[in-house]
Design a protein around this nucleic acid. Structure first.
Lengths: 334, 334
DNA sequence: GTGAAAGCGCTAACAA
DNA sequence: TTGTTAGCGCTTTCAC
């Protein structure tokens, strides 16, 4: 239409090579007029090479991360047909070194993209910056590195989920009685998520029911036997609600079940098998689902769609707070 | 590798044309051995034509369907670059004829696929069967036609959401007092969803708190002013919880708000603006989100991925029951 | 500065 | 029953 060859049009559209100003303008105008949209299929056909994307998440000791892994597996087949291979790298959630070691391997591998759950902020930042340097696109999920601007961040709003948890306890627990915020020594205490959740929880109580007493307690026992400590707490205080800001609510739930303390309301996180069992038996009242599988799925899809189809990216996707009860949980566990 | 031409390989792989048994087996074996996977990108490049998919949903009078429409709009751009054009057809949710008329137009249009929310079962079945005849793939969302086997069904479990609603009222409402199942005359009474929800609600009450009294009431007023009837009900009975199985919970919420009946718990459906307002002000306690936008999005994505990428389909996708509270709702409404 | 041509992996039409 | 070839829309390379 512009009276020039297809090669010249290509040069104009991609601002590459030398083109005279006159033809450049002419081609641009025509492209505008006919609303030219490049055919992404043809484009990906010609740049048809195998791509690798590195997945960096904690290892599978924890059911939460197993679910994330499953989410990735679920979509990896779909991207295989576009010649994207997802290479998993695992680190230990209680060992910063293992994260760094995995990071080094990833950099050595020079992947075409990285999806990571950087629960260690400083180490995560280091990897992120290396990727930026090598202009490898990065998608973060679960945890975001403050200040970093990756291609996309996928996650949940921890602060808000803490507020929601407090509201649920407030609505269902006995009016009298203290709320307990429980932590267990086996967890990464002070992770950003945990702190945000706790802050949200307390914020709600302060605003909506300032007269409600609460205590933050860290239980510790080398063998993860917290029964005795719970007993002490319950003799000391009259407890009407418990908030566990991690996936360890089952510890509290098991004890409540054993002690037949059916009136105490319990809110926890994550649809792990231990939690689900107690949810169904009525000893956990609410679980907040952080949807690790969907987060991971979305992360992979986002990165791959960008790489393969050149799709534009929504830089920040927050999953809604998913409140799950005994009756709302899917009957068939998939 | 098999010593035959690319054309023969193509014939074997697609079971078309005549191929000798010997070569057929040889090609199959080699394909198996090298784990041959067709390149979907190349395939879609060669069959590169514009495709139309018809979208059939109720018109935009109702906010629920406006949200569904928005979900479609959100992903239509992404499929445009694959040359898929989504053509919307609307019908009136209170007029079966309008559904039939739209159906006729769709069939005339001969689209490459149909996405529909067939709230009228018989008329929906008719369209479905015509599509089957013309081998046009169909995806249904929101409502499924009993017995029909479309490419995919996207929806929520109404029965279960009714149970969940009952549980939420049971957990939060005063122990004494009657539960009210409210319907409004402006709705399509007896829609399958509505009946399932109600059945689920009652099932829960029977099982979990058989002593709880409940009444099913249909309010009717030509001007949608239900205040007087609500007043009568509340003087007749001591009500502690209300269940509205549709998006009309705001009618009840507004009245509760006006009458300062803050102790009465209210569960409704759908994040419409009127409902959200009352949720935030505390007069609706729980909303069950049926996610019309995501349902529609998923429906379009499923059909398009099948058409364009030849992707395999999960024939039935149930969205989880999404319980929303004042604190769990996204702070910024998008 | 610009044009011509090869080729990405596949399908479809035609030839043998 | 099998082989050959054009061409889908684009990028890239080489030649002028």
């Amino acid at each position: 239409m512009a009276g020039v060859s297809i090669g010249t049009v290509d040069r104009v559209l991609h601002n590459r090579g030398r083109v005279s100003e006159a033809t450049r303008i002419r081609v641009r105008e025509i492209a505008e007029k006919i609303n030219y949209k490049p055919n992404m299929i043809a484009r990906s056909l010609v740049t048809n090479r195998d791509r690798t994307i590195a997945l960096l998440i904690p290892d599978q000791k924890d059911e939460f991360w197993r679910q994330a892994r499953d989410g990735v597996k679920g979509v990896s087949g779909k991207w295989e047909q576009f010649r994207v291979i997802i290479e998993p790298f695992f680190y230990s959630a209680d060992n910063r070194n293992s994260f760094e070691k995995a990071s080094e391997e990833i950099i050595k591998r020079k992947p075409d993209g990285v999806v990571m759950a950087p629960i260690f902020l400083e180490e995560g930042r280091k990897l992120y910056e290396q990727c930026i340097e090598l202009s490898i696109p990065v998608v973060m999920f679960d945890t975001a590195i403050p200040g970093a601007k990756p291609l996309a961040i996928i996650g949940t709003d921890s602060f808000q989920s803490g507020m929601a948890a407090a509201q649920l306890l407030h609505m269902t627990a006995r009016k009298k009685g203290r709320f307990l915020v429980l932590h267990f020594d086996e967890e990464v205490i002070n992770s950003p998520h945990m702190l945000d959740k706790e802050r949200g929880f307390i914020e709600y109580l302060k605003k909506e029911c300032p007269r409600r007493k609460y205590s933050i307690v860290v239980l510790n026992n080398p063998d993860h036997q917290y029964h005795q400590q719970l007993e002490e707490i319950f003799t000391k205080w009259k407890i009407s609600g418990i908030y566990v800001s991690t996936s360890r609510a089952y510890h509290a739930g098991n004890w409540l079940s054993k002690e037949k303390k059916n009136k105490v309301k319990l809110v926890g996180y994550d649809l792990t098998s231990a939690n689900i069992k107690l949810l169904k038996s009525g000893h956990i009242d609410f679980l907040i689902n952080q949807n690790p599988n969907k987060q991971a799925e979305e992360s992979i899809n986002t990165l791959c769609a960008h790489l393969v189809h050149g799709e534009e990216i929504v830089p920040r996707k927050l999953f809604p707070i998913e409140i799950v009860t005994r009756m709302s949980i899917a009957i068939s566990n998939d």
